[in-house]
Design a protein around this nucleic acid. Structure first.
Lengths: 254, 254
DNA sequence: CCTGTTCTGGTCGTCACGACTCTTACACTA
DNA sequence: TAGTGTAAGAGTCGTGACGACCAGAACAGG
């Protein structure tokens, strides 16, 4: 990493054999959709500092594993889910004092899951729960460490990923209706999408979704049952739905 | 960072008081445009490992500085430039064995500068030089550590930033012609843009660029002198030039 | 004055997309 | 079994962005 080794570039304290020691952790922002609302999985801290406060799940990176591997392991330990496909790194955080105990640099990962509700219920419900992302963004809920900023960055990232990758399909089940998929976009971008136009964009013979032939059960109010689809293979080339310029500008202005 | 402290979550080796120690470094991918070609600043390693090979400039993070601060400091040490505005983090790298000496996690930063040619000439030309980015991408030039991957990720990032931020103006001077600005897009995206259409997109009364009234000196072959512009304040809301869907698809397929 | 080169401005066709309307299909109830 | 309500599926139209292409303007140099 060091490049030139002139005296001004390598003071004694930064000799490679005596580098400053850091703890490296991996924090995972686990997102899911519940009732057309974007939620984040938080755990309650059992010890100081920030004892009793809610935080993002995470843990130390081990020397013999990669960062991606550490994130995958933490996700599995917290939820039991082995979802390596949708685990993307979005940032590193190393402000001095962010952990009062020691020098910690953490790497943030974004995970998108479905059916986390059942998973959380399976664990001890007292120290793991789903919270609306809006509660974190508008500071209704205060988080430990700098986790508020980390969650905020994760949301910014998922908003972009939604436009350029197939991350939307990770929020829904293996089969889904177009209305379900549409609520994902609407909840994450905070916009209203015309159902007809959405359908035309997604079903446009490009292989975004594949009809399964099945039909969903209508809601309690009746209505025509929606067709069931499964994700196609075209999502790796950028998603079919794009934000309107007005909407994007709003987000930046926000 | 640790969340629950059950016995399975906290093996003795990962007690907070005895965390695994890592060195944390910051590596800066410094990009600039020379003769309509995208170049990256590399330095030659003076010591093992990878002695004599070219690498990205970087160095250890100090405990009392932020990651952004460390990147800013490294950039200043290498180039003397204090360009905090366009220094963006794009990834963290911590594969075991990426540095044979010890456990190192590095955070990659992207810096965009102009006039690096003069800066490099000012330093010892033997151990710092500009290389075409294409030489790194197609593996004509082999880099130390995993720096090839880091540069590749940085290029991926700058291609996206070019579309959604005003990073293009960082490659040109305070005043510039539209042709200069166009070559930035063409070099980074590897496309050809119609000069007339490019002009229309940029000068569309949105404040992307502000005419200064001055005119550039024509090239050696003559021609009409181009008007000089300076960057407007609208770039923070997303850039005016967007890739064609075909071009974006090519990049993913690549 | 002529020519070559580059910038600047204009036109046109295409296509993606949003707004809007209508039809279809099913559940539920009387 | 007929009627009603609801939501999905399908069509239409207008607008706006953008790329391809062309023409004029401005300057250097011979």
């Amino acid at each position: 990493m060091t490049t030139r080794t002139g005296p001004e570039d390598a003071p004694p304290a930064y000799d490679p054999s005596r580098f400053p020691a850091f703890a490296v952790t991996v924090d995972v922002v686990i997102l899911t959709m519940v009732n057309a609302t974007l939620k984040v999985l938080l755990v309650r801290r059992g010890e100081a500092p920030f004892q009793g406060m809610w935080a993002i799940p995470g843990g130390f990176k081990r020397p013999n594993e990669t960062l991606d591997g550490a994130a995958k392991r933490e996700l599995a330990e917290e939820t039991g889910v082995d979802a390596a496909s949708l685990l993307t790194q979005f940032g590193a955080y190393g402000d001095p004092g962010r952990d009062p105990r020691m020098n910690v640099v953490t790497v943030g990962y974004l995970a998108v899951l479905r059916d986390v509700g059942a998973i959380v219920a399976g664990t001890d419900a007292a120290d793991a729960a789903l919270f609306p992302v809006s509660d974190v963004l508008n500071e209704t809920l205060e988080l430990a460490f700098d986790h508020q900023r980390i969650v905020r960055d994760a949301i910014d990232r998922v908003r972009v990923e939604l436009e350029v990758t197939g991350i939307a399909t990770a929020f829904v089940g293996t089969t889904f209706t177009l209305a379900e998929l549409r609520t994902v976009y609407e909840a994450i971008w905070g916009v209203q999408l015309d159902a007809a136009n959405f359908r035309r964009s997604v079903v446009s013979d490009d292989g975004w979704v594949i009809p399964t032939g099945g039909r969903a059960r209508p809601g309690p109010a009746g209505g025509r049952p929606a067709e069931l689809y499964q994700a196609g293979r075209a999502w790796r080339h950028g998603g079919p739905i794009h934000r309107s310029p007005a909407g994007r500008r709003d987000e930046v202005t926000r």
